[in-house]
Design a protein around this nucleic acid. Structure first.
Length: 596
RNA sequence: GGGUCUAUAGCUCAGCAGGAUAGAGCAACAGCCUUCUAAGCUGUGGGUCGGAGGUUCGAGUCCUCCUAGGCUCACCA
């Protein structure tokens, strides 16, 4: 695992198109002074916890060992060296064992805002992924089952990661690895033949399929023969028996239709719906490949690959009844993807409970000598729980995602209507509905992406529908409010500073400078989000930007200022904030609105 | 029992490859709309970072042990 800021350093030294990177520049200066390699200095440099401590800090502890002097004395010595007297540094101060650098505020403001204005929505884009393909497997619901709030996690995560990788120049292939195969379909076929109702299936397919699925499990407890019938049915399905296949196809088509609705609402799309069933044909060649490599071992009638050298339990590839299992299908899929996409990375956005499974699959690939095993990565995420229990389709205790979206939209609608009346806004009913849709859905998306993905989420309506504080509505609201100012400026004929306007260096108040710095950190946040597959690295940054803007907004009058230059500089800052929020929320899968 | 992850404010979470007084949001309390959208802003209270050792100039962060909990351990996915 390569740490991310080394990547940034590398990018910069390779001539990235970023504006001046102060940390790199200062590292170079300090390198000249101390004789320590500049990359090493860069590694040691920190961002101080308080603004009074400057923008960058160099701790002198390590130097202290080499020079046998107190770090405090070294800091004093370094800080007073004229080498550090450069135009973009306002002052250098020794504070205890640290050398603190205060960047010239105007210099930074102008550099950052210019860059954002020039690049527009290309701000924070990169080409490090040029020519490389990343496969993101996500969502992958089981067909014939309702799409519940647990499935939303992988869907939202994968969607965001896909956009993030695209932003960095990667060619992204979004794969919905449908759970459309396996013993469960033997069960479903069995259940449908016993209790299925055609009319109900027609009217509300998922509900009917769920009903008979639950019924099957209730009856299975007292009737072991059902299990056997189900297995037989799956075997016939896998063997291509037309009757079973037709039923299965029907279940699949109906389910996909239902899923498409949810995906449309969330703005999610896929490049491939190649699910488990698609790999059924590839299995024999996978088996023979593993046989060639002499990896398959018979065990209790089944065939497994031993993985002792990886300190992993054996991976079951063929069941004792001769049918395949998910591991064999995942092996086939990985091989297929390598062949067809020659991926740089093959990412599986699948729940953490399956982590052992993926370790085993990757280990089998590795043991078979396939070097792309190292490019496969399981991006796990926590469980979505309901109080003290897991969601269980069998037991029927689930919250369907569509219900959550609807609740969220309904609540948003209510708030907008209240506000619209209060502000005497002239928004049409249609416009209000559209806004409620975007904000309501964005709000659900954001709750999944606001913290580290490995955390479990305990579902609660109250928290899911909390629109105060750190939430999507907060981000969108900040955007809408800023857009409103920009509209007013145009009405009043007030010009916003362009990228080359020196007025931009007037942005030097505490609030303005804090905001500018946060804006300048957005690209790094995106890179970190990608390198750790953690969209929350990005969501936090967007949230910080919004908070800093609101602080600024409450402290300074943007349109009301007396100075024309300052006014247009502040407007440019507003533009930059809009660009950053729009870019950031887009990468999270959240739409922004012009008014709310 | 083996593997693995987690434990930070009343609640939900940050804390970026150890560094300067541990930060946000929610909740509570007190303020701020004749002025750019109050889904906002400001302030107050609230923490022996699960426990015990250790490494280090320095540990919420690294190591060991312990405790509690989650997930997982082949014929479901």
């Amino acid at each position: 695992m390569v740490p991310s800021h080394d990547i940034c350093f590398l990018l910069y030294t390779l001539g990235g198109a970023k504006y001046m990177d102060y940390k790199v520049e200062i590292s170079a200066l300090l390198s000249k002074l101390t004789g320590i390699e500049s990359a090493e200095i860069h590694r040691l440099m920190e961002i101080p916890p308080q603004p009074e401590m400057g923008d960058y800090a160099f701790p002198c502890f390590t130097l202290s060992k080499q020079l046998r002097k107190s770090p405090v004395a070294i800091a004093v010595e370094l800080a007073s060296d004229p080498t550090l007297n450069v135009d973009y540094v306002d002052s250098v101060r020794a504070q205890g064992p640290y050398v603190n650098f205060f960047i010239d505020k105007g210099h930074l403001s102008k550099a950052v805002i210019s860059e954002i204005i020039l690049k527009g929505e290309q701000y924070a884009a990169s080409d490090i992924g040029q020519g490389k393909t990343v496969i993101v497997e996500f969502s992958s619901p089981n067909i014939a089952k309702p799409f519940h709030v647990g499935h939303a996690f992988t869907t939202v995560l994968g969607h965001s990661l896909s956009r993030i990788y695209e932003k960095l120049g990667y060619n992204v292939v979004r794969v919905n690895h449908l759970g459309d195969y396996g013993t469960q379909f033997g069960k479903l076929i069995t259940a449908y033949r016993l209790w299925g109702e055609e009319s109900a299936l027609e009217a509300s397919p998922i509900d009917e399929l769920l009903r008979i699925y639950v019924l099957f499990h209730e009856n299975e407890k007292d009737d072991p023969e059902l299990t056997q019938t189900a297995r037989d049915n799956f075997r016939r399905l896998e063997a291509g028996n037309p009757e079973e296949k037709a039923l299965w196809q029907r279940f699949r088509d109906l389910s996909l239709k239902a899923f498409a609705q949810v995906y449309n609402r969330m703005g999610v799309a896929f490049d491939s719906y190649k699910g488990e069933s698609d790999y059924s044909d590839h299995i024999p060649s996978v088996i023979s490949f593993l046989e060639e490599k002499d990896l398959l071992v018979d065990s209790e009638g089944a065939r497994v690959v031993m993985l002792d050298e990886y300190k992993l339990p054996p991976c079951l590839v063929v069941k004792s009844d001769g049918t395949t299992i998910y591991a064999s299908r995942d092996l086939a899929a990985a091989m297929y993807r390598h062949e067809h996409y020659n991926f740089h990375k093959n990412i599986y956005v699948v729940g953490l409970p399956q982590s052992l499974h993926f370790q085993q699959v990757f280990a089998v690939l590795d043991k078979a000598g396939l070097d792309y095993a190292k490019d496969c990565e399981h991006v796990g995420f926590g469980l979505v729980k309901f109080k003290n229990m897991k969601f269980s389709t069998r037991e029927g205790n689930i919250v369907v995602l569509e219900d959550l979206l609807n609740e969220s939209i309904a609540k948003t609608l209510e708030i907008i209507k209240t506000n619209a009346a209060l502000r005497q806004s002239d928004m049409t009913e249609e416009e209000i509905l559209e806004i409620a849709n975007k904000v309501g859905i964005g709000s659900v998306i954001y709750t999944y992406l606001k913290s580290g993905r490995e955390r479990d989420i305990v579902f609660s309506w109250e928290e899911m529908l909390d629109f105060d504080g750190d939430s999507a509505p907060y981000l969108i609201y900040t955007y809408a409010r800023t857009r409103s100012i920009l509209r007013k400026a145009i009405e009043q004929g007030i010009r916003s500073a362009d990228a080359f306007d020196d007025s931009l260096s007037l942005l030097t108040t505490e609030e303005e400078f804090a905001l500018v710095k946060l804006l300048s950190d957005l690209p790094e946040a995106i890179e970190k989000a990608a390198s750790s597959n953690e969209p929350f690295m990005l969501s936090r940054q967007v949230s910080r930007i919004a908070r800093a803007f609101n602080r600024f907004y409450n402290n300074s009058s943007i349109l009301g200022g007396a100075d024309d230059h300052l006014r247009s500089a502040r407007l440019a800052l507003c533009e930059a904030v809009c660009t950053a929020i729009k870019t950031g929320t887009y990468l999270l899968g959240i739409d922004v609105v012009e008014r709310m």
